[in-house]
Amino acid sequence: HEITLHINGRRVKLRFRDEKAAEILKEAAKKGLDEEELKKLAEELWR
């Protein structure tokens, strides 16, 4: 699955395995994680 989040006016595509991962990524984006941090988090969730 993929999700596209808008971060600092940019579109960031993240891959994720399940809905739980999608929710975690959305929450992290709301908390203000930047693009690099979100990509790292997405990679961690993928494993």
Rank of each mutant, 00 (worst) to 15 (best):
His1Pro: 05
His1Ala: 11
Glu2Asp: 07
Glu2Tyr: 14
Glu2Pro: 02
Ile3Asp: 01
Ile3Arg: 02
Ile3Cys: 04
Ile3Ala: 02
Ile3Gly: 02
Ile3Tyr: 02
Thr4Val: 13
Thr4Cys: 12
Leu5Gln: 00
Leu5Cys: 05
Leu5Asn: 01
Leu5Ala: 02
His6Trp: 07
His6Arg: 08
Ile7Trp: 02
Ile7Asn: 02
Ile7Phe: 04
Ile7Leu: 07
Ile7Tyr: 02
Ile7Thr: 04
Ile7Asp: 01
Asn8Gly: 08
Asn8Tyr: 02
Asn8Arg: 06
Asn8Trp: 01
Asn8Glu: 08
Asn8Val: 03
Gly9Asp: 05
Gly9Arg: 01
Gly9Ala: 03
Arg10Leu: 10
Arg10Phe: 05
Arg10Met: 09
Arg11Asn: 15
Arg11Ser: 15
Arg11Leu: 15
Arg11Glu: 15
Arg11Pro: 15
Val12Phe: 03
Val12Cys: 03
Val12Lys: 01
Lys13Trp: 01
Lys13Ile: 14
Lys13Gly: 03
Leu14Thr: 02
Leu14Met: 05
Arg15Thr: 04
Arg15Ser: 03
Arg15Phe: 08
Arg15Met: 08
Phe16His: 08
Phe16Tyr: 15
Phe16Arg: 02
Arg17Trp: 14
Arg17Leu: 15
Arg17Phe: 12
Arg17Ser: 08
Asp18Ile: 03
Asp18Met: 02
Asp18Leu: 02
Asp18Gly: 09
Glu19Lys: 08
Glu19Val: 08
Lys20Thr: 10
Lys20Glu: 11
Lys20Trp: 13
Lys20Tyr: 12
Ala21Glu: 06
Ala21Leu: 03
Ala21Arg: 02
Ala21Cys: 06
Ala21Ser: 15
Ala22Trp: 08
Ala22Gln: 08
Ala22Met: 12
Glu23Trp: 06
Glu23Leu: 11
Glu23Thr: 13
Glu23Asn: 13
Glu23Gly: 11
Ile24Phe: 07
Ile24Arg: 07
Leu25Ile: 11
Leu25Met: 05
Lys26Gln: 11
Lys26Trp: 10
Lys26Asn: 07
Lys26Gly: 06
Lys26Pro: 00
Glu27Met: 09
Glu27Thr: 08
Glu27Phe: 04
Glu27Gly: 08
Ala28Gln: 08
Ala28Gly: 09
Ala28Ile: 04
Ala29Asp: 02
Ala29Ile: 11
Ala29His: 13
Ala29Pro: 01
Lys30Phe: 10
Lys30Asp: 12
Lys30His: 13
Lys30Ile: 13
Lys30Ala: 14
Lys31Cys: 10
Lys31Asn: 14
Lys31Val: 11
Gly32Trp: 04
Gly32Glu: 04
Gly32Gln: 05
Gly32Tyr: 05
Gly32His: 05
Leu33Arg: 06
Leu33Met: 14
Leu33Gly: 08
Leu33Lys: 08
Leu33Ala: 13
Asp34Tyr: 07
Asp34His: 10
Glu35Leu: 13
Glu35Ile: 15
Glu35Arg: 06
Glu36Val: 13
Glu36Asp: 13
Glu36Tyr: 13
Glu36Trp: 12
Glu36Cys: 09
Glu37Ala: 15
Glu37Met: 14
Glu37Thr: 10
Glu37Gln: 13
Glu37Asn: 12
Glu37Trp: 09
Leu38Trp: 03
Leu38Ile: 13
Lys39Phe: 12
Lys39Tyr: 13
Lys39Gln: 11
Lys39Trp: 11
Lys39Leu: 14
Lys39Pro: 01
Lys40Glu: 11
Leu41Ser: 01
Leu41Lys: 04
Leu41His: 01
Ala42Thr: 03
Ala42Gly: 05
Ala42Lys: 00
Glu43Asp: 13
Glu43Val: 05
Glu43Ser: 06
Glu43Gln: 07
Glu43Gly: 05
Glu43Leu: 07
Glu43Phe: 06
Glu43Asn: 07
Glu44Lys: 10
Glu44Met: 10
Glu44Pro: 00
Glu44Gly: 06
Glu44Asp: 14
Glu44Tyr: 12
Leu45Thr: 02
Leu45Asp: 01
Leu45Gly: 01
Leu45Trp: 03
Trp46Gly: 02
Trp46Ser: 03
Arg47Met: 14
Arg47Cys: 10
Arg47Pro: 05
Arg47Asp: 14
